[in-house]
Nucleic acid binder design. Structure first.
Lengths: 149, 149
DNA sequence: ACCTAATCTTGACATATTCAAGAAAACGGG
DNA sequence: CCCGTTTTCTTGAATATGTCAAGATTAGGT
């Protein structure tokens, strides 16, 4: 008998291994974790796992569609579970925190391009990132990151 | 008498320097150039310019709002001129080419979030990335990048 | 239990970016 | 036009993130 997580891995055509379970557990516990954080979290359940194994898992699980890679300016790659559900991200430009925001319109109307606009591209997905200040950074004067002097 | 480019640099509170002009010229000639490409292009007009100077310029000009940084999964940072005009990007997942696409709706309707959705964030901008295959990669069988075996 | 392919470990390597100290350049005032 | 102050650049090393490759181990079908 397989757990749902194990079943999902198998159904993606991948073998169920300790590093993969550790990575998925880490992502379940820490949404939008960056690579370093995932490595550290995975080592709590699987002490000696190599960083290379974690990179391999992240690549394999991303290609399999079980997780999704989020790349944001100025910080290492982050990953999240359940790429299928239709949501986007709010990113604080000061502290880098990422939170989910549901897409209010289902299939978002302005994310549909005309044939003329796509210029022959076959569009597969649209990704939206909202940038701004989180409540903490908006109220705190300045002692944060990446700000002009 | 200053050129428009020089005036823009001054009005941003920055000094007009050879490296900054070289970087802006490079970006004018090569839209969506990555850092390495910018360094090479800048050295055509200013032969010995250091990579560090180019990084400094890119940071300063980004903070000043004269250029915009675009970060895409798996490739180094890219930059573009005129961040103010309302457009988004189409990215080929095989060859990495980036092209502009105008936002068809002016102020895009679905990019407006409700107060409940923003959870206290002060949103400053929304960024949209469309991913897919460019015409060349869509018609060519496979000998490209980043594809599962 | 055995076999084979997939996956992991190890350690070096590659690439992108940042740090820090001194030298050079920009530009406002004399 | 030259000087002084401050910004910016050069140089060279360091850090961070991610990749490569060879051999050992493991998963899972038979």
């Amino acid at each position: 008998m397989l757990t749902p997580t194990e079943r999902a891995i198998r159904e993606a055509g991948l073998r169920v291994t300790q590093p993969r379970l550790a990575v998925l557990n880490a992502l379940d516990a820490i949404p939008h974790a960056d690579t370093q954080t995932i490595i550290e979290a995975a080592r709590k359940t699987l002490p000696g796992v190599s960083h290379q194994a974690v990179y391999n898992c992240l690549d394999a699980l991303t290609h399999a569609g079980l997780i999704r890679r989020i790349e944001l300016a100025g910080s290492p790659a982050r990953y999240e579970l359940r790429p299928g559900d239709n949501h986007h991200h709010l990113v604080c430009r000061e502290c880098g925190v990422v939170i989910d925001v549901a897409c209010s319109k289902g299939v978002a109307p302005c994310l549909t391009l005309t044939t003329e606009q796509t210029q022959g591209f076959e569009i597969e997905e649209a990704e939206v990132v909202y940038r701004g200040l989180c409540p903490e950074c908006a109220t705190t004067p300045s002692p944060h990151r990446r700000q002009l002097p």
